[in-house]
Design a protein around this nucleic acid. Structure first.
Lengths: 218, 218
DNA sequence: GGATAATTTGACCGACTGGTAAACATTACA
DNA sequence: TGTAATGTTTACCAGTCGGTCAAATTATCC
């Protein structure tokens, strides 16, 4: 008799490892495009190349699949913000943060859209994560930024809205990819747009945040 | 015998006017939260306070409802960009654009989310609008910005990515509202966050785009 | 190789989906 | 006021939804 995966005390078998991986990969494909409500187990099963009951053997409900996916992706997703270093130089820290976030938008667009879909639809499944771990991390980094501003290393500004603006500008290239491509047209459709975006955003934020003092004329 | 609305040649009756309005209002509520696939006619019918077949009397399919909604909202949504004036002063034009976009995010968050959902899910219903009217409008305004840069009125930068960054930062407050609230916490949950955002964003973009020359020390 | 546990699937269920048919109710207008 | 057009609803349909079940198949270990 089959043992539902939650009940077992022993280690996961090789097959379990592989299949769960396969399923979550397919689930990411589907959920990231259609959101939770708009996705069906059948779609995921087809992408995963296995039967629906087989999926439900590894994850008892659609919700469990979604949950597992969110849990797995959330930690990685916050990595760039976590790497934000209080001891570092403000300009290079902000530059680095923008660059890392843009790289993630380029390399993991599905993950970005998964969260975007979820938050857009009212975050019914991740409210706790937003109000808990996420808020704490942002509070911590906001304090760092505020200290920099107080020390005159960057211009005085609201650190929360600064973080929001870095999130939104960078994730835009993953979440609104179709729109970006449509507006840029065929020519700029290669990966070059990420380099252009990086150049623009680094300039915007560095110049926009540096303290204005006597500078050589441009 | 009932005449499906598309077939009639005469003017719309008062009832048609009212009911279609009512339905689109409800449809906006539902589509903006769950996207096209995730929304059901039953949900819309319940919000609209009428029976499902009654909705289908006015709009023959779910798709027609969505289409009508998009068409109605798109024009309004592009208004701020259209108002962008080549003859104006660059700083005040950019400031004004940010302010207007933020006001729309505050006053019409459902409209913003409707588009966000649609684009996020690959824009299957509005691809033509993106590649056509939207691209043309952006191209036109990008040329204006490029001319400003060439004339030394603002710093040299990629006008497309500038527009993207204004879109993303402002719409963020509508589309990711739950997340913004969660991170800001209870205290900042009032409408004050829009004023804070406006202050931050205007500062960021104005300072980030102004040409660096000798300035008084801060 | 055989017993046992783990994995996979086809058939199925009740609820819901987008949409239809036709009867019924209401309105506009002569 | 009558009647034809317009508007509304109940009952329904075929297909899909998330999920179950039991039987069949495969891997594991002695």
């Amino acid at each position: 008799m089959a043992i539902p995966r939650a009940a077992k005390t022993q280690r996961r078998t090789r097959i379990q490892e592989e299949k769960e991986e396969q399923i979550l990969e397919a689930a990411l494909d589907v959920f990231s495009v259609s959101g939770f409500r708009g996705s069906t187990i059948d779609q995921i099963a087809e992408v995963a190349g296995m039967s629906k009951p087989n999926l439900l053997y590894y994850f008892r409900t659609k919700e469990a699949m979604h949950r597992a996916l969110i849990d797995r992706v959330l930690f990685t997703w916050l990595e760039p913000l976590r790497a934000f270093n209080a001891q570092g130089n403000p300009e290079s820290e902000i530059r680095g943060y923008i660059r890392r976030k843009l790289e993630m938008a380029r390399d993991f667009p599905r993950e970005s859209r998964l969260f975007a879909n979820e938050v857009l639809q009212g975050a019914p499944h991740i409210e706790d994560e937003l109000k808990g771990p996420l808020k704490e991390l942002v509070d911590e980094k906001a304090a760092v930024i505020r200290a920099w501003a107080k020390a005159g290393k960057i211009v005085k500004c609201d650190p929360y809205h600064l973080i929001f603006s870095i999130w939104s500008t960078t994730q835009h290239y993953a979440d609104f990819d179709v729109q970006v491509r449509a507006v840029l047209g065929q020519g700029q459709s290669g990966e070059g747009r990420f380099e252009d975006a990086a150049r623009f955003l680094e300039q915007l934020f560095v110049d926009g945040l540096s303290v204005r003092t006597n500078q050589p004329a441009s």
